[in-house]
């Protein structure tokens, strides 16, 4: 019964996205009369969802790339070496776990506005790279926490062997330790893909130019527009465009989880 209450609204949206505009004046329970893909082309081209889709893909991928490039070395070093300041850095990131993005979105916005003004540029707002950088930064505490605890479980014997063979610490990290941390890296990518793809408050605040917006913000525009212009199909099609990638990923991951992500360690 409860499973139905979860599944029905989602299924209903998929159905509604195939309906023609006139069908919306009939019972909401009726199945669509045919496969009407015009809603999707309308949403994709007229409502700019195509552009937003590409923006979203671009920002999400860039943010994940930045995040991994920055978080992996830091997590590795924090879990492996003892040096002065390690405790402080660890404590800082732990504290960061409690910072909620919704609180600090306005100060970040003001900081970017201030940078723009003092440097006489418009670089810092409406910039996908800056947006991706902010996404990556806000995900750092969680990601470093997760990677660090995984690195800590890996045996040291590999690194010692690499050290004896004269391998530099940088190469050891990149070619030996990072591949071994693959299961945790996959988890990090999945979680952050979902949160970056779905995020809208930061994007709404930073991206004021229409062509720069991401998918969830575009969907918000569609929601407002359909109330005014009575074009319901487009809104439902937009909804499907936003949630389909996450649903597909989710279904794929389900399989992957059951396959088990164990990577071989030291044998014998």
């Amino acid at each position: 019964m409860l499973a139905i209450s979860v599944a029905v609204p989602v299924a209903w949206v998929f159905m509604a996205s195939l309906k023609q505009n006139s069908e919306f004046y009939e019972s909401p329970w009726k199945l669509p009369e045919g496969f009407n893909f015009k809603n999707f082309t309308d949403a994709w081209y007229d409502a700019n969802m195509g552009t937003y889709f590409i923006n979203s893909v671009f920002v999400t991928l860039m943010a994940i790339a930045i995040l991994l490039a920055v978080a992996l070395p830091c997590a590795y070093v924090l879990s492996r070496f003892s040096f002065r300041g390690r405790g402080i850095i660890k404590a800082l990131f732990m504290g960061g776990l409690f910072i909620n993005v919704s609180y600090i979105v306005v100060p970040i916005f003001l900081m970017l506005v201030g940078l723009n003004r003092s440097l006489q540029v418009t670089f810092f707002l409406n910039n996908h790279f800056v947006l991706a950088l902010v996404y990556a930064s806000t995900a750092l505490p969680f990601t470093i926490y997760l990677l660090q605890s995984y690195f800590a479980t890996l045996p040291r014997a590999y690194e010692e062997a690499a050290y004896v063979d004269g391998c530099s610490p940088f190469r050891t990290m990149l070619q030996i330790m990072v591949p071994m941390a693959r299961p945790s890296i996959i988890t990090v990518i999945l979680f952050n893909f979902l949160s970056f793809w779905n995020e809208y408050i930061i994007a709404l605040t930073f991206m004021t130019d229409d062509v720069m917006k991401t998918l969830p913000v575009g969907l918000m525009n569609l929601m407002k527009a359909q109330n005014a212009a009575a074009q319901y199909g487009k809104m439902y099609a937009g909804l499907v465009i936003v949630m389909l990638p996450t649903l597909i990923l989710y279904i794929l991951v389900q399989k992957k989880l059951t396959e088990g992500m164990t990577v071989g360690g030291i044998k014998g």
Binding site: A69, V77, L92, G96, L133, V134, S137, M173
Partner: peptide, 14 residues
């Protein structure tokens, strides 16, 4: 290894 992460964290969160 630690500087980039720390810098981003301090600028955009702390």
């Amino acid at each position: 290894c630690t500087f980039p992460a720390l810098a981003l964290f301090l600028i955009f969160m702390a």
